[in-house]
Design a protein around this nucleic acid. Structure first.
Length: 662
DNA sequence: GCACTTTATGTTTTT
DNA sequence: CATAAAGTGC
């Protein structure tokens, strides 16, 4: 435990009660968690099986596991839980399903599946409407609001209709034997709350909890934590209110603010020494975040010297910005004789990566995009997951609909419509009514053959999948449906080849997973829903990292480029109201504090919106960094606030407020 | 009624 | 660029 500072050491050794560690960016918070796990096992004699560390992303969980393994080299960590909130939720659900009337082979719906269910219920094809409803439902679940309560709280006709849709949505999911992401927290909470025996069992099993990124917990996750820790309240929560960037997902900083109230004997330890960034970067970050209403006072400091000045480039438009950033990065790298892997380019939205990728390819600079479209969201992978989901749970209608249509087998929209009506009338799933004798009366005669053939086909593989490992069955299923040929017939040869390569990679991933933990079909299927990026360990590759600001949290880079610093991008156009501006500011803060040695900012004077180039204004956050250490280039300093532009901004704000009132 | 082709269109952030 | 809606041939 050498080279820990006194605050870190205190945080690791404190065991007398609940502990909140306020860990500033780069203050070694992951280190505190991993060292504390080692301390609890080595020095305090905890059984690893009685410890759980909870993170928000798989990436964080994986990294933590690796660091713990290294720290405890040789000693057993068997039974140690290091997982995301959602994975822990699945584990609890799987063990306790019978208490809430689900089968253990339940499906996990992703956002697309849930969207389709809600669209059907609302009878709406308008995307914006359904999306609003989806957010509403998600917010209710995250706040542990039941359909009944939502109905009671409804203020007007619209809210009442939404609450009814919510109720119907829950019923439908239950009929499908399916849960959504929010259920993975909400259901375990109700379970632990309402069943004392279950609660005691889990409290007994998880005797000490460590929670990472505590500021990102939502109400449901906080309740889960309370129920798991119980009266003993043996936990360490580590967080940073300045890095709370998931408010839009229901995360609530109130959980941080109210922790001292809920636990009067809560011990508070602050980590303020930053081991990551040079002084100039840290000063800029401190100046920026000072514009937020602060929850806890915190001043980061560093012993790492002044470092390079922060540069700001003004570019004509998005393409020019991408080009300039790539050129600047090249020049900087030559001058420093550095590696590509020392550089990251960070941005607000995924779409900003495209222009960058183009120039990086042109310059033959290796790069990796993190965030962005997940491997498991690719069409070919979703196709196969749906087959697995259907084999695992034949009540999973969304999976049925996809599997029955890919590849095409002579069953089209009209037939599925008729089948859906029949299934609805019989109160059974699509797959179930395929086996009924009455089927012939409800679909066209010539449709009968392909439908029955599909039913047989699934049934045959289902029996095999019950006995054999999914990774063995899947390749045969692929051959049986002629998937490779289908891909070739659908796409250009080279896209078809990449897609098939993805399929092969997916099968390999499944095999590796299965070998690792002896996964059953239902475990594998559920794991697929939760694991987002294919966990290829690629830190070895020397490549520039492209990442959204959200996905960059928890990472650090020697040199950071932060692009698109314009009003409307960062802060985002739809985040003009006060508390959301604060979250955008924290997002900027996260970006700034990723940098160790140098930080390069850029923004455009004009940006393409649709087919037109719209003039834009530099982000207010640039001004808030303090001018002292900024070096401008490309177009001089940003123009002083211009009245016409302010008027424009005001008009935008008014439009938003009107929309909300109406 | 089904399958495949063309055309428009649009993108906050993620478990 | 990748998906979704509308249009065309069978």
């Amino acid at each position: 435990m050498s080279s820990l500072n006194p605050a870190q050491r205190a945080a690791i050794r404190y065991l007398d009660g609940p502990l909140l560690v306020l860990a500033g960016a780069g203050s070694g918070k992951t280190r505190v968690i991993t060292e504390k796990i080692a301390y609890l096992i080595d020095t305090c004699g905890f059984n690893p099986g009685n410890l759980a560390a909870i993170t928000f992303t798989n990436k964080a969980a994986k990294e933590m596991q690796a660091r713990v393994d290294k720290l405890l080299a040789g000693r057993s960590t068997k039974g140690l839980t290091i997982s995301t909130f959602h994975s822990l939720g699945v584990r609890i659900l799987r063990e306790e399903v019978k208490a809430i009337g689900y089968k253990p082979n339940f499906s996990i719906f992703d956002a697309t599946d849930c969207f389709a269910v809600l669209a059907e219920i609302a009878g709406s094809t308008d995307k914006a409407t359904v999306r609003r409803l989806q957010t509403l439902v998600s917010n209710w679940k995250n706040a542990l609001v039941t359909p009944e309560l939502a109905r009671k709280n409804a203020q007007n006709e619209t809210e009442l209709r939404a609450a009814d849709a919510f109720a119907a949505y829950c019923t439908t999911l239950r009929a499908y034997q399916a849960v959504d992401f929010d259920d993975l927290i909400a259901l375990p909470v109700t379970l632990l709350r309402d069943h004392a025996a279950v609660r005691e069992k889990w409290q007994n099993r998880l005797r000490y909890l460590l929670i990472d990124e505590y500021q990102d917990t939502n109400a449901a996750q906080y309740q889960m934590l309370r129920l798991l820790t119980g009266a003993r309240a043996a936990f360490t929560a580590v967080g940073d209110d300045d890095q709370a960037i998931y408010g839009w997902r229901g995360a609530d900083i109130a959980n941080l603010r109210e922790l001292p109230r809920d636990y009067p004997n809560l011990k508070l330890i602050k980590l303020e020494q930053n081991y990551r960034s040079s002084v100039r970067i840290l000063q800029a970050a401190n100046a920026l975040i000072a514009h937020n209403e602060k929850l806890f006072d915190k001043q980061l400091w560093s012993e790492l010297g002044p470092g390079e000045p922060i540069t700001v480039s003004v570019c004509a438009n998005g393409e020019k910005e991408a080009e300039s950033v790539v050129m600047k990065l090249q020049a900087h790298r030559f001058q420093q004789r550095g590696a590509f892997g020392d550089y990251a380019i960070l941005y607000r939205g995924n779409f900003q990566a495209r222009a960058l990728e183009q120039f990086l390819r042109e310059q033959r600079i290796p790069y990796l995009v993190s965030g962005g479209q997940s491997f498991f969201d690719k069409t070919e992978i979703k196709d196969l997951s749906c087959y697995l989901r259907l084999l695992n749970n034949t009540d999973d209608d969304p999976a049925f609909l996809r599997a029955v249509s890919v590849p095409r087998r002579g069953v089209g929209a009209a037939t599925l419509q008729a089948l859906g009506n029949y299934a609805g009338q019989r109160q059974r799933s699509f797959f179930a009514v395929l086996g009924e004798h009455g089927l012939a009366q409800h679909v066209q005669e010539r449709q009968l053959a392909p439908l029955l053939e599909f039913h047989d086909f699934i049934e045959r593989f289902r029996q095999r999948a019950a006995r054999e490992a999914p990774a063995l069955v899947l390749p045969e299923l692929l051959a049986a449906i002629g998937y490779e040929a289908w891909l070739l017939s659908q796409d250009e040869p080279r896209t078809a080849r990449t897609r098939w390569a993805n399929v092969v990679e997916f099968v390999d991933w499944l095999a590796a997973k299965g070998a690792e933990e002896g996964k059953t079909l239902s475990e594998a299927t559920q794991a697929i829903a939760l694991v987002n990026m294919l966990d290829r360990t690629t830190p070895e590759v020397d490549a520039v990292r492209l990442s959204t600001l959200h996905a960059a949290k928890g990472l650090e880079f020697k040199h950071v480029f932060l692009i698109g610093l314009e009003e409307g991008i960062l802060p985002h156009r739809e985040a003009q109201i006060d508390n959301r501006i604060e979250e955008e500011r924290r997002l900027m803060y996260v970006g700034v504090t990723r940098a160790q040695r140098s930080l390069h900012l850029s923004y455009c004077e004009k940006r393409r919106q649709g087919r037109e180039l719209i003039p834009c204004r530099s982000s207010r956050f640039i001004d808030e960094l303090g001018r002292a250490d900024l070096r401008f280039s490309g177009g001089g300093e940003p123009s002083p606030p211009d009245r016409s532009l302010n008027a424009e901004r005001f008009a935008g704000l008014k439009a938003i407020l009107n929309k909300q009132a109406g």
